[in-house]
Amino acid sequence: MNSITLTIDGKSVEARSGETILDAARSLGIDVPTLCHHKDLLPHGSCRLCLVELKQGARSQLVASCGYYVKNGLTVETDSPRVQRARKLVLEILFASLHENTDIQRYARRYGVSRSRYKRSLEYCVLCGLCVRYCQEVKKADCIGFVGRGVHREVAWIPLSRYDDTCKKCMDCQAICPTGVFPSNWGMASPAVES
């Protein structure tokens, strides 16, 4: 009853309701690149690396496959020219701050991105939200959150004392951070909230 049929890259695939296009594509062995996606966490849709093209007759749109749930009769292209163009741009942007991340390097190679128009910097944070969501959904500790918006957006301990009383003993989200430095980069963030 719950089975849904859709077409991905010309192949018909069965999926369960509640699965995302990304899940369905991966079940076919298609390697859709992702950054902010994590199997234990709810979709966030912030990195746009997983974009795929949804075809509806003559119309088509790009959607984030990690957060788009399967529907009967969807026609999806995971590597069309339009997807490739969009993904290249996203990779170029990410590559500027994540050129030492092995996954990003691998995808960059695949899409022929070897340098970025954007200024290279090893920022500690690309705002993927993995640490925040991990702490919230898996660890259930709620030590950190995003503060601010736009270029001022950053991850902060709320309140600041959470770092000392909880994170120091945990450090779990360090493995999940694509830049690998959070939360051990104590002092790099300028925490917005004093306790």
């Binding site: 709620d142 030590c143 959150g145 918006r149 909230v193």
Partner: peptide, 12 residues
């Protein structure tokens, strides 16, 4: 509501 969620909204 966890405090970080409140600050996320209040600072946005």
């Amino acid at each position: 509501v966890p405090l970080p969620r409140v600050y996320e909204i209040a600072t946005f």
